[in-house]
Nucleic acid binder design. Structure first.
Lengths: 152, 152
DNA sequence: TTGACTGCAAACGATTTGCAATTGC
DNA sequence: GCAATTGCAAATCGTTTGCAGTCAA
């Protein structure tokens, strides 16, 4: 299950809060749902749906992978968890230009490049240096581009 | 095919350069390979393999999707094109914490969070403001973590 | 009781692979 | 001529969906 951000007691408090929120927004408190949330709370390593499922199976052998996927989607919809932001599933390609960053419009999915030389000059947080060697540093910004905002 | 970063003439120059590089590194200059590269050069919108394939089909109806995938992989291996960096194909989840960024180790695929308050204070490039409304701003850094670097 | 939720199995989309035929060098 | 490359079809992987049974409220 690996180490968590939280102590056992904090986890219990957060689970209480989870129950309260679910009740408030009308999500049924099923065994599966609470266990999926607890497993994610108890994980520090950003597990994938499948990794999370494997962990939960140890405690609840009947848990199905579909339920994990569906529950993660539900919890995400209600803002209880976050999918780590990336370009959608399809990989996209580009000819190598100079280093740059990406603006992604959540509506039209278009990606715009931009440069940000200042970013290369500001000091990185100390933890980054402690972590290891950095090969690339990319900012991904999500938002709504003006065209999409206007055609709303 | 949509607008390109380049003029017709620049594209021809870049194609010349492409041929030279392929010859140098021992990649055969097949019709498909050059057309895939040209199509990508002529695209400004970060197409997916499938999108690129559709475009090429107009000019070369026999082009197979597999070849597009394979060629993109080959060109990427040789550093001629870049796959836009994201977390690998699998989506990963986390409980909502405070805003943070990600360090991803290319070897062990582990993701580490870090905060970077300074980033929130520096001014964004002007183009970003012109583009539209920003909802989120995430830095993804790729590299090799110390553990992996040591066990090498 | 009843609609929300689950498990199962089958479908799905993006990508990769084995293989035989083709092509650049 | 030979190895690299291609097209085809089938396999794979992560994820989603239809459906019938189950369970929280």
């Amino acid at each position: 299950m690996n180490v968590s951000h939280w102590t056992e007691q904090q986890i219990e408090e957060l689970m209480q809060n989870f129950s309260a929120v679910c009740r408030r927004i009308g999500l049924k408190l099923t065994h599966q749902r609470t266990e999926i949330y607890r497993a994610l709370l108890s994980s520090i390593d950003h597990p994938s749906a499948e990794a999370l499922h494997k962990r939960i199976l140890i405690r609840i052998p009947s848990m199905s992978l579909d339920t994990v996927y569906r529950t993660l989607a539900t919890l995400e919809q209600h803002g209880l968890i976050e999918r780590i932001k990336t370009v959608e599933s399809q990989a996209r390609f580009e000819v190598v230009l100079t280093p740059h960053h990406h603006l992604i419009c959540c509506k039209c999915k278009q990606i715009m490049d931009f440069r940000w030389p200042d970013l290369d000059h500001i000091t990185l947080p100390a933890v980054v240096g402690q972590w290891g060697r950095i090969d690339s540093k990319t900012v991904v910004m999500y938002g709504i581009c003006k065209q999409c905002a206007e055609t709303d």
